[in-house]
């Protein structure tokens, strides 16, 4: 076959609207920021709130990113995901407290080193816990949504009680490392250093995840598996093994999010993961189940909205996020970046 085939390749030129559509959700973030600017009287308050909203969004993203992939890959609804947030926070904070001299020293390098050790400890613990959780709790209920909800909620309760057994029922207060305390002043606005670090870490996690998902074979398998797991297996890949890996990575990220969230609030409780689950679920749903990009954008929207509204009308903060969810689902019922599912 040498000559051009009679069905010469043609692809309907995608209309402009069609090509822009996938990027629309991303544009919502600056749109929301501009709306915030219009509603908030002072530029410096707006800047402070925006950074704080982005920081919060990044942390929610880190906590939620694993959950969206777990759902997308194996259709598993995990109400126990918050357990990893709490456990991560307790392990991380415990390590930080043990490294008191390092966090107390006024040296950024020492502080960051202590933080790194704490984060690695928390991620190892929650990653392993994820492995056990998948084996003991999730695996027996594959394919049964109601059982998944019940059993994973049970897992969450057990985890919370274990935290209370190990660390006691009181909340633990934790000071941020010395060099991350306080704020820098920029354009008349006070920007907390810790929030800037949180934004940087969140961005780094997002970019790393994107890189893995786009540029590695394992990432390709995960993306393909979210769309059509059966076909991935028919090509010869052991999706179950990949899923366990994703579950562990997602749990470890939730653990990382827990440490960051704990330091952000400067207090940790056994219930903090459970409390974060409302926002995490909102973000996963509005992003589009299984979509890491959607989860990222959704988290930023939720973080920004929460902060703007809390400033303007404190009582309406949580309601505003539920309103956001309703609005987005009316616009795109499958979420902002819906995953194309087979069948």
């Amino acid at each position: 076959m040498t000559q051009a085939p009679d069905h010469a390749p043609k692809m309907a030129r995608a209309s402009l609207a069609h090509r822009v559509a996938p990027w629309l959700p991303l544009a919502l973030v600056p749109v929301l920021a501009v709306l915030g600017l219009a509603a908030i009287p002072s530029l410096s308050s707006w800047l402070t709130l925006t950074i704080s909203g982005l920081a919060m969004g990044m942390m929610i993203f880190i906590m939620a990113s694993g959950l969206t992939l777990v759902f997308g890959l194996m259709d598993v609804i995990n109400f126990g995901h918050g357990a990893f947030v709490s456990v991560g926070a307790f392990v991380g904070v415990t390590v930080l407290l043990m490294l008191g001299p390092m966090t107390g020293a006024p040296s950024l390098a020492l502080n960051l080193a202590a933080l790194l050790v704490a984060v690695i400890g928390a991620m190892l613990a929650t990653g392993l816990m994820g492995w056990a959780f998948e084996r003991a709790i999730v695996r027996p209920v594959y394919g049964h949504h109601l059982k998944q909800i019940l059993v994973t909620m049970g897992g969450l309760i057990v985890a919370e009680q274990l935290i209370i057994v190990l660390w006691g029922p009181e909340e633990i207060y934790i000071a941020r490392p010395e060099a991350l305390k306080g704020a820098i002043t920029f354009a008349g606005a006070a920007l907390e250093k810790y929030r800037l670090v949180a934004v940087a870490v969140g961005l780094a996690v997002f970019l790393a995840m994107r890189l893995v998902l786009r540029r590695t074979r394992i990432g390709l398998i995960v993306r393909a598996g979210v769309q059509n797991g059966e076909m991935v297996q028919a090509l010869g890949y052991r999706l179950r093994l990949v899923f366990v890996g994703v579950f562990m990575a997602g749990s470890a990220l939730a653990g990382l999010g827990g440490v960051m969230w704990g330091l952000y609030q400067e207090v940790i409780t056994a219930q903090m993961g459970n409390q974060a689950m409302i926002l995490i679920f909102i973000v996963v749903i509005i992003g589009g189940l299984g979509s890491v990009e959607g989860c990222f954008i959704g988290a930023l929207l939720v973080g920004l909205l929460q902060n703007y509204v809390a400033f303007l009308e404190p009582k309406a903060a949580l309601i505003s996020n539920i309103g956001l969810m309703v609005a987005i689902l009316m616009w795109r019922p499958m979420g902002m970046i819906p995953v194309v599912k087979a069948k």
């Binding site: 993306r223 393909a224 059509n228 991935v232 890949y237 194309v340």
Partner: peptide, 14 residues
């Protein structure tokens, strides 16, 4: 069983 969100290349690589 096409992976619609993946490129033709990515489908083939997999």
């Amino acid at each position: 069983g096409i992976f619609a969100d993946l490129t033709v290349e990515e489908n083939m690589v997999l």
